[in-house]
Design a protein around this nucleic acid. Structure first.
Length: 160
DNA sequence: GCCAACGTTGGC
DNA sequence: GCCAACGTTGGC
């Protein structure tokens, strides 16, 4: 019985938002397009089914945590790396030696209203949150259980 | 839309 | 294997 871990995953909502996730079949999607090794390694090596994920909307105003998801699959190769028509195509990746991995994620809850970055920044206990650090570009980040709980308090809902 | 910070690439 | 050049990210 392994301990549940917590994560934050970023998406530009005009590309893929929490509403898009909610409208998918089973409210589940594959988190395609990660092309950063550190972020890939988190998905490939550390994520477990059932882990909690904060859904962060980046490059938009206001910047928010829009809600939460659960890791819903084991890691597997990102199909888009093999697809020449995909913007995520990687000519150096092969089916035998895939370079990029992903997991499925399933919608858990939407924060109404969402928790803004401004709120996160002024909340005690979140000082070390990676997403708040200047220049933090990593699109998948670990979150502590304490941070997970505080964010849910700010959202006014119970953690699930 | 700008641009600083960051990650990756590739010549040497 | 260093590091300059380049491309990308993401807050503002």
């Amino acid at each position: 019985m392994s301990e549940r871990k917590y994560w934050l995953m970023k998406s530009e909502p005009y590309e893929f938002s929490i509403d898009d996730l909610m409208s998918r079949e089973n409210q589940t999607t594959y988190w395609e397009g990660v092309r950063n090794y550190q972020a890939r390694n988190f998905m490939r090596d550390q994520m477990k089914v059932g882990d909690g994920v904060l859904f962060y909307h980046s490059r938009v105003n206001p910047l928010v945590i829009a809600g939460t998801m659960n890791v819903a699959s084991e890691p597997y190769p990102d199909p888009s790396q093999f697809d020449p028509d995909s913007k995520y195509f990687d000519e150096k990746a092969t089916e035998e030696k895939p370079r990029w991995f992903l997991v499925d994620v399933q919608f858990t809850q939407k924060f109404e209203p969402p928790v803004t970055r401004d709120t996160l920044q002024e909340t005690p206990g979140l000082e070390d949150m990676m997403v708040l650090r200047k220049g933090a570009r990593l699109s998948i980040q670990p979150v502590t259980e304490q941070e997970w709980n505080i964010v849910h308090e700010l959202a006014g809902v119970d953690p699930k």
